[in-house]
Simulated scan of single mutants.
Amino acid sequence: MSSGIEPKHGKLLAEMIVPSSHWQLQPEKQDPFTSKEAAITYLNSHNEPLYIHVPYVQDDISEDRNNGARITVTSREDDVVFTINDINNGGETALHFSHLKNLDSSLRTLVESCCDKKIVAL
């Protein structure tokens, strides 16, 4: 598996996730992207994994970044690979980049199967 993400994969994710009111896309150890343009600028010069934070469903949605799944995003040829790394709950799923429109349902399935949790909609 590649340790980075192809720019075309990252740009598609940025277009889908950055406008989200709940999900966040970010590079490691940096703040989440605040605009699609900032994400695209970053991706044009960096080839490293990205991270998606998706909050778990609760009665009261909070801004607590620990209340959710942290999903690592990398590229493997034409696939975008989503991985949850956790000692107790881990898993992986991959989507061909042309099928990223199915991102919401694919990540829901991954989180539910790995963490037995529901996540907030994209």
Rank of each mutant, 00 (worst) to 15 (best):
T83N: 08
Y42L: 06
A69P: 01
A69V: 02
T83I: 11
T74N: 03
D64C: 07
R65L: 14
V54R: 12
V54F: 05
T72N: 07
Y42H: 11
D79W: 07
V57H: 06
I61M: 09
V54C: 13
S62T: 15
S35N: 09
I52K: 01
D79P: 03
E37H: 11
H53W: 07
D64L: 10
V57G: 00
A38I: 03
Q58W: 09
T41R: 12
V54W: 02
I52M: 05
F82H: 03
D78Q: 02
Q58T: 11
L43W: 03
L43H: 02
H46A: 08
A39P: 01
S45A: 12
S35M: 06
Q58D: 10
S62K: 12
S35G: 09
A38R: 10
R65A: 11
T74K: 02
S45T: 14
L50D: 02
D64H: 11
I52A: 04
F82I: 07
D79G: 05
N44I: 06
Y56A: 03
S75E: 02
Y42C: 05
Y42W: 15
N44K: 11
T74H: 01
S75K: 01
S45F: 15
V57F: 10
R76E: 15
S75G: 12
N67A: 14
E37W: 09
K36P: 08
Q58L: 10
P55N: 06
I40T: 11
R70G: 05
T72I: 13
R70W: 15
E63A: 14
E48L: 10
V73A: 03
L43Q: 02
A69K: 00
V57A: 09
T74G: 01
E63M: 10
T34P: 00
A39F: 02
I40S: 09
N66R: 15
D79N: 15
R65Q: 10
D59W: 13
T72G: 05
N44R: 07
T34L: 08
T41C: 09
V73Q: 01
I71P: 00
T72P: 01
